[in-house]
Amino acid sequence: MFDALLWWFTAPLEYAFMRRALVACLALSFTAPVLGVLLTLRGMSLMGEALSHAILPGVAVAFMLAGFSLPAMMLGGVTAGLVTVAVAGGVTQFSGLKEDAAMTSLFLIAMAGGVLIVTLSGNALDLGHVLFGTILGVDNATLLLVALASSLILAGLAVAFRALVVEALDPLFLTLQGRHAGWTHALFMTLVVLSLVVGFQTLGTLMAAGLMLLPAAAARYWSQRLEGMLAIAIGLSLAASVTGLLVSYHAELPTGPSIVLLAGLGYGVSTVAGPCRGLWARYRGPRRESLPQ
C-alpha cells in the first residue's frame, strides 16, 4: 500500500517536464494567494478576475508581433494590465464610477479584443494555449521568467507589506502617517498584474486568478487573523497545485483545470466545515447557545 502511494507521488517526477511544471506551480502558490488575501480584505476579489482577462490584448499583440515568444507575451500582458489599471483609475477619478465597475467594463472590451486579435493572427491551438495555459510545456527559459517574476513579487511584498495591509484597511490613516495611499494602491495593483501574468504562463488568462482568489476566499473560513489567513491560503494553494498536477498526470486530464477545480473543492469544503462563518459552525452555534446552563 505504501509502495503504491509512494509510486503515485514520485513516478511523474521522473520526467523533466513534470518537475518544471511542479516548480512553476510552487512559485505561483507562494505569491498569488498572498495577493488574493489582500484583495479580499479590500473587497476587490472580482478585480483579480477582471485583470486576468484584461492582460489578453497585450498577450495577443505580442503574439502577433513576435509569435509564441513567452518573454514578449509576458511583457505585453504586464503592459496591458497596467494600462487597464491606469484607465480604470482615471475613469473612477473623473466620473465617480466605482473602480470595480470601471474595471468590469474595460475587461469585457479587452477580452473581446484580445480573442479577436489572437484568432486573426493564429489558429485555434494558439488561442487555446493563451486562454488555458501550457503548464506541462514550461521550458527552462519560461521557468526562469516565472521564478524571477515571483521573486520580484515576494520582494515587493516584503518591502511594503505593512503599508499594503494598512492601505487595505484604512487608507486615510496611511495618508495621515505621511505615506500616500494612492502610490501604495498602485504598487499593489502592479504586483497583482505581475502575478496574473505569471499565472498566465501556467494556467492561461481564463484561469490565472484561480490560485489567487479561491484559496484566499477559503482561508477566511478558517481564520480571522491575517497571518492565519495567509498561511492557510498558501497551504491550500500548494495542496491544490501539487495534487492537481499529479491527478492530471495519472488520470490524463488537463492540468490547469484540475488544479483550479481542486482549489474550488477546497473552497467548497471550507464554506461547509470552516470554523469561522462556515455552515456547520453556524448550525452548531445556535444549538449550543440554546442548551440549558
Rank of each mutant, 00 (worst) to 15 (best):
G156S: 05
L174W: 03
L144I: 12
T79W: 04
G137K: 06
N123L: 01
V115K: 09
A186Y: 00
M103A: 14
H185D: 13
T134A: 13
L203N: 00
V85R: 10
L108W: 02
T92Y: 01
A160Q: 11
Q93M: 11
V192Q: 09
L127T: 01
L196H: 08
A124N: 08
F94D: 03
G199D: 02
L127H: 02
M111I: 10
V78A: 13
D170I: 08
Q93V: 06
T175I: 01
V138T: 14
L196T: 08
G96Q: 05
L203G: 02
V115G: 11
H180V: 10
F94Y: 14
V130M: 14
V87P: 05
A80Q: 03
V83Y: 02
A149K: 04
S150W: 02
G156M: 07
A88C: 12
A86S: 12
A168F: 01
G178D: 08
L172M: 13
Q93N: 10
A149Q: 06
F188R: 02
L194K: 02
L169F: 12
A102W: 02
A181N: 03
L203S: 02
F173I: 10
A168K: 01
E167R: 13
F132Q: 09
A149P: 01
G156V: 00
G137Q: 07
P171K: 00
L120I: 07
A86V: 10
A124F: 01
V85G: 12
L143M: 02
L144E: 12
V138R: 03
L143N: 07
E167S: 15
G89Q: 14
L82R: 09
V118Y: 04
V118C: 11
G156T: 00
A163G: 00
L154G: 10
L136W: 03
V193G: 10
L120R: 14
V166R: 05
Q93L: 13
I135Y: 01
V87Y: 06
T175M: 06
I117N: 00
L194Q: 04
F188N: 08
L143A: 12
L148G: 04
G96I: 04
L131V: 10
V115I: 15
L164T: 05
L176H: 11
N140I: 10
T184D: 01
Q177D: 06
G81R: 01
G133H: 07
I117S: 00
V159E: 02
L116S: 14
M189G: 00
L176K: 05
V166K: 03
G156I: 00
V91I: 15
L187W: 12
L157Y: 01
V193C: 13
E167K: 10
G113E: 08
A163L: 09
L144Q: 13
H185W: 07
V197I: 11
A141P: 01
G178S: 09
L187N: 03
Q201K: 07
L120T: 04
D139N: 15
H185S: 14
S151F: 09
L196M: 11
D139F: 03
E167Q: 15
F107A: 12
T190C: 13
F200G: 13
V87K: 04
A80S: 15
Q93E: 13
L194S: 05
M103R: 08
S121Q: 07
Q177G: 15
